[in-house]
Amino acid sequence: MDANNLVIRNLHVAVDGKEILKGIDLTIEQGKIHAVMGPNGSGKSTLAYALAGHPRYEVTDGEVWYKGQDVLDLEPNERSKLGMFLAFQYPVAVAGVSVANFLRAALNAHRAQEGVDPKETAIPMAEYRKLIKQRMDMLNMAPDFARRYLNEGFSGGEKKRLEILQMAMLQPSIAILDETDSGLDIDALKIVAEGVNRVKEDRPELGVMVITHYQRLLNYIKPDIVHVLMNGQIVREGGPELALELEDRGYDFIREEVFGNAS
């Protein structure tokens, strides 16, 4: 097993006492793009939140390994420092906290080392300004974006671009994109997808899990492997052609094959 792969084994997750994920087995390989597709209510977002460590998502069984660490034992901030990144489907607004200040604090948290004065590891201001400008230029973002409050009054497209900017700044090794396409028109979707591709170009070892309901995002972020999530389990895996087949035929044919005609 390659320690740089994210390995999920028999993951069971409950929300408010109701089991949503019923034994997920999935490996996200270093440098590969994985699409996780599924109909509404199949557990896609639950998978994303559980991997990021949201307290409302209770892991009842299973394990998740990354870089030799039992991910489920780690706090959300420790998972981030380990190199995991979740691009939220619904990014949260935080009034009074500017994008620039927030990203600097996050970057410094990543650079912090135990037993070392944080002032020593903190990114120098000039270097930080240069870095954020370079990343914002890469994502075609206007400079005033950094001064705005985190997601406060942002359009859907702006929110998703901010998620990708955060990814570009924090340089994760595993990125989980939770329905990054939802609520975006085709132009916004192209911009966001291009941002993801640029971050990936910059960092070819990045492993990506693209969670989506629709195939259209996968026209712009090309997956190596497609997994189909249904009723809290991975029921089918295949190459990029599987996504196209789902686009053509919908999810019903898989549902029938896996669960029979009952539903």
Partner: peptide, 20 residues
């Protein structure tokens, strides 16, 4: 959770939200 998920330790995340 949003701030924690970006690597901020809990104390700092709380301080940032309150200061905001």
């Amino acid at each position: 959770f949003y701030l924690l998920s970006r690597g901020l330790p809990p104390v700092e995340a709380k301080r940032m939200i309150v200061l905001g």
